[in-house]
Amino acid sequence: MVDVPVHVPQQQLRVQVGVAQFADPARTPQAPSASSTGRSSRPAAAPPPPGAQPPPLWGDENHVRELFGDRVDALRLGRDAVVVDRFATPGQFRDFFATHYGPTVAVYRANAGDPERTAGLDRALTDLAARHLAGGVMRWEYLLVTACRA
């Protein structure tokens, strides 16, 4: 098994000078976020590499604590939300992600020759937005992680 998730924080800690800070709305499992878009498209996408863990685990405080372990001091975790008011309709959400969000663009490209799969992805994105879009607003929760190298 490849130990990809643990390797990533080690690299990030080496690159940062003293303090590492991460915030990604696509990494919180409880939120209707960009990671939800990735889950919707997964049946049409290539499988992740062996040993890779799902990106939403970066939104799980216990998982993040385990990844960093004793390699950091003063680990602080906090939650917040980004208010997204860009999409008036589920269709606008779908069109934006199909055109501008890299992983979704890649899935559409990979399935360009399969109208059935493309239509399924269209439905999944539209349904996702319909579930979480309230009055033209979505709230995407994220986990903010701040740590100092040990």
Score class of each variant (00 low, 15 high):
68 F>H: 07
8 V>H: 05
16 Q>R: 09
64 V>W: 00
64 V>A: 02
83 V>R: 06
2 V>Y: 03
70 D>E: 08
88 A>N: 11
79 R>C: 05
41 S>W: 01
66 E>C: 07
79 R>E: 07
84 V>P: 03
42 R>V: 00
22 F>I: 11
36 S>T: 07
37 T>Q: 05
37 T>C: 10
39 R>D: 02
72 V>L: 14
40 S>Q: 08
35 S>F: 03
42 R>A: 14
35 S>L: 00
40 S>W: 04
27 R>L: 11
82 V>N: 02
7 H>T: 10
6 V>K: 09
15 V>K: 08
45 A>G: 09
49 P>V: 00
36 S>P: 01
86 R>D: 10
65 R>Q: 07
60 D>C: 04
30 Q>D: 09
75 L>N: 12
71 R>K: 07
18 G>I: 15
70 D>F: 00
39 R>S: 02
79 R>L: 11
7 H>E: 12
87 F>P: 00
50 P>V: 08
33 S>G: 12
15 V>Q: 11
25 P>A: 11
32 P>E: 06
58 W>F: 03
71 R>Q: 14
54 P>T: 06
26 A>L: 04
90 P>I: 11
57 L>P: 03
53 Q>R: 10
52 A>F: 13
33 S>I: 02
79 R>H: 10
68 F>T: 01
73 D>V: 15
11 Q>L: 12
88 A>Q: 14
43 P>R: 06
60 D>S: 01
54 P>N: 04
25 P>N: 08
63 H>F: 12
57 L>F: 08
68 F>M: 12
47 P>V: 10
54 P>C: 05
41 S>T: 00
90 P>R: 09
64 V>L: 02
23 A>L: 15
80 D>K: 10
40 S>R: 03
85 D>Y: 01
43 P>Y: 07
86 R>P: 05
23 A>C: 15
53 Q>Y: 08
65 R>M: 04
90 P>F: 13
43 P>C: 06
65 R>G: 02
78 G>Q: 12
23 A>W: 14
43 P>F: 04
89 T>E: 03
77 L>V: 09
25 P>C: 14
28 T>I: 01
48 P>Q: 06
78 G>T: 13
9 P>Q: 04
32 P>N: 03
38 G>S: 06
32 P>G: 09
73 D>E: 15
2 V>T: 07
69 G>K: 10
8 V>W: 05
6 V>C: 15
40 S>C: 10
72 V>C: 15
12 Q>T: 08
41 S>A: 07
7 H>C: 07
27 R>I: 00
12 Q>I: 10
78 G>W: 07
27 R>F: 11
14 R>C: 06
61 E>D: 13
60 D>Y: 00
87 F>D: 02
68 F>P: 03
55 P>Y: 13
26 A>D: 05
84 V>K: 03
36 S>A: 12
41 S>V: 04
16 Q>P: 01
74 A>D: 15
26 A>N: 02
75 L>S: 06
20 A>G: 15
49 P>G: 13
83 V>W: 01
83 V>T: 14
